[in-house]
Design a protein around this nucleic acid. Sequence first.
DNA 1: TTGACATTCAAACGTTTGTTTAATACATAT
DNA 2: ATATGTATTAAACAAACGTTTGAATGTCAA
Lengths: 213, 213
Amino acid sequence: MAGTEDNTRERLLDQAERLFSEKGFAAVSVREITNASQCNLAAVNYHFGGKQKLYLAVFKERWAKRAQKLQKSFIQALAGKQQPDLEEVISAMARAFLEGPLTDSERRNHIQLMQRELSNPGQAMGMIVQQVMRPFIQNLVSMIRPCLSREVEDERLRIYVLSMLGVVLYFFLARPAVSGILNQEYDQRFKSELVSHITAFCLNGMQALNQER
Amino acid sequence: MAGTEDNTRERLLDQAERLFSEKGFAAVSVREITNASQCNLAAVNYHFGGKQKLYLAVFKERWAKRAQKLQKSFIQALAGKQQPDLEEVISAMARAFLEGPLTDSERRNHIQLMQRELSNPGQAMGMIVQQVMRPFIQNLVSMIRPCLSREVEDERLRIYVLSMLGVVLYFFLARPAVSGILNQEYDQRFKSELVSHITAFCLNGMQALNQER
DNA sequence: TTGACATTCAAACGTTTGTTTAATACATAT
DNA sequence: ATATGTATTAAACAAACGTTTGAATGTCAA
């Protein structure tokens, strides 16, 4: 070999990510993946050692990097501002998930894959929580704390951050249902409308932290 | 026959609901269901006509009734009050989902089953949206509208209601992840803490509707 | 050219899948 | 008792599943 780009392996990861995110692990067959990747059936076992290990490889080699990219774009959006206010933080978070650095299909794959693993914990869940979600939430917590007018315990603040993430992710997750209920397509116009709605809703929601308990 | 209670059919629906909600449609085999139901393999085809039709029967004969029960308990909680204020409406909604009339396992099955269908639309999705979600959301909209200090278009109000539902459902959905991140068990104490948090967060969030655009 | 290595391929492996079949058991009505 | 319709059973079905195999490629160094 030499500078072999191992194209088959990459194609397998591409299609596996897409299909697993669309249908879930059990509903996708190895033959479906290899057909979509235009390679031989045995390629999955040759390159990854089995279907289950391919699923894990998708998370380790694709999902984790997307998550980093997403968080980088969030941090980037707030760079330069010494002390971003609450609205800027929330808007940057919503934007990272809804309009961030990923393409539309990348975004859909990414979030649906995460959701499947979070609500149906498999072998990748530990990695997601510890290496991605925990740091990201702690990051948000430390950016939000200076914006508040009173002291708040870490745990209470984390629940509020989770609530905001819940709003953002749910609009994504239940996308087909949301479209059906609102009679709205998920086009660019609707997405930026969503960002400003979410920002307003969460910005006000966080004000509960500034009130007496 | 006569007053045959058709016990096998009921057991099949019970176990199918549990297993489908825990693992998803594709990951559950007919043999797994019939073993858990302590009946013969052919019973699924005899009573329902196939695995797919059993899945639909779970939604029609079990899920839909649970959803009605849930909405009834929400309406009941607000009965008597001629003009419930916003906090009462929101708190009743959160309580209906988190502490409502269902047992813990019923609740988990119910919400996870809905979520699977909403993010992975199958044949039951249309029924869920049109017969359950749309009416429930419209119900919430008409209860919330009188609480606002300014006129708001229907569509804008619906987005806000969806946001509140998002918060509630996400805390349920990502339950394993939430527990992992907060180091909290989902016991009774934490649930009622969640209800008051969600109420506070959403109550403030809805205030955005009372502000200038 | 030869040898060694990495990759692809068609074919087959043994299981498990959803579904069907035909026989049996059981209750009720005639 | 006999007939009738419902429910359950063990056994078998073809199809699809994940995985393995061994031969056929292609590639680069010696």
